[in-house]
Design a protein around this nucleic acid. Structure first.
Lengths: 212, 212
DNA sequence: TGCGAAACGGAGTCTACCTCCGTATATATG
DNA sequence: CATATATACGGAGGTAGACTCCGTTTCGCA
């Protein structure tokens, strides 16, 4: 299927496609993504894809050709939002205290995962099955690896328990995000849960819980 | 199947109905519940209700007359399983250490909530909306109240943090159950998460217990 | 044994998913 | 500019499950 025939301009924006990018393809893709993001935000991951297609001004066939599965569409939307994560990581290099950096990264993950309801579930499926054809597997793995980095630093130079793995914290963050997404937890409960998690993964040495 | 011989005495469990309980009604209800429980266990809360009706030997109309909503069916199935909780509470009266009792109660909740996948979501909706017409609201409130009891005891005579509320622990238990239900957490991760939670809601040794 | 109320069940409607394929179009070529 | 062809479009249509409505059946009671 994949025939690498690079004619000209092999240097593209990363995706090395050897042929011709049609104009309407790009337009439709962008339109679908924009609408999908809005619908995901408004109605959650389970929103009707037909309504997305209709509002984007394309037929269902076009939507499914661009994004064969709901997860593929999600992955593309998340890609749009991922720059936020990159920016956050850059900011966190300024934080000297590794415990504080880990804490803020966990909060960043939580916000990212609770952007719209129903997001945690497909991520967990990806994390569990680890199948390469699932478009969410790669971003998921990246987030886990990043969490591992922050955790390692906090274990080495901070107060994080050595028995914890990065994957565990990833799961903790996504669980809190899920909880937040259900809407059943008010601010007080979310704060309490976050404190429970933070206290729990830190070792028992004197801790000061600083707000924000 | 199993027919509860309670015809003679009108001393029922609260429903003061002075009329006639039809035989096929009871038979169908029991059959639906038995099949529904198996399907929930096997395929999760999202299982096809039509398949439940078919396997129970009734039409869709009958199923929906007995249980107008999916949540109503769930509530009835949970009612079946609630004796397990009652038994557990009886056992826990034997546990002297209130911290240990709370810990075991949390574990009981977790097991109860992770009986089948998709169970946490409707419970969270019930916990959030608190609408009396939702058949899950009452059992949900009961569980929260019970958790509050164990927590109170652990706060008074044990080492539980005073800043935690029973509702927070209820949310924590249901979050862990959700995580377990996704299948993405192996035993090691679940143990780690449970430890995080337990450590988090307990005050550390050097911590002030605030024992008046 | 008959009667009326209560329950049954399945046909029907609705919504959403997803695919297939005839048609339209953007790009490349003469 | 005209034509050719690969490529993409889009909607009709099949599938599945949720939920309802109502003619028919069944049960309990007298």
């Amino acid at each position: 299927m994949e025939s690498d025939e690079e004619k000209e301009e092999p240097m593209s924006t990363g995706e090395a496609e050897g042929r011709k990018p049609r104009a309407d393809v790009l337009r439709n893709r962008a339109s679908i993504l924009e609408v999908a993001q809005r619908h995901f935000l408004a109605h959650g991951f389970g929103t009707s894809l037909e309504s997305v297609a209709k509002e984007a001004g394309v037929g269902p066939g076009t939507l499914y050709r661009h994004f064969p599965t709901r997860e593929a569409l999600l992955a593309a939307v998340l890609q749009l939002r991922s720059e936020e994560l990159v920016a956050r990581r850059a900011e966190l290099t300024q934080v000297a205290d590794p415990d504080e950096a880990l804490r803020q990264w966990m909060r960043t993950l939580e916000d990212y995962f609770s952007a719209f309801s129903g997001l945690p579930e497909p991520l967990m499926v990806a994390a569990r099955e680890r199948e390469p054809e699932n478009p969410l597997t790669l971003p998921c793995d990246n987030l886990i690896a990043t969490t591992e980095e922050y955790l390692k630093a906090a274990q080495l130079k901070g107060h994080a328990r050595s028995s914890i793995r990065g994957y565990d914290l990833f799961l903790a963050a996504i669980s809190v995000a899920w909880l937040k997404g259900t809407g059943a937890a008010d601010d007080a409960s979310l704060t309490a849960l976050r404190t429970i998690v933070e206290t729990g993964y830190s070792s028992g040495s004197p801790r000061q819980v600083r707000k924000r």
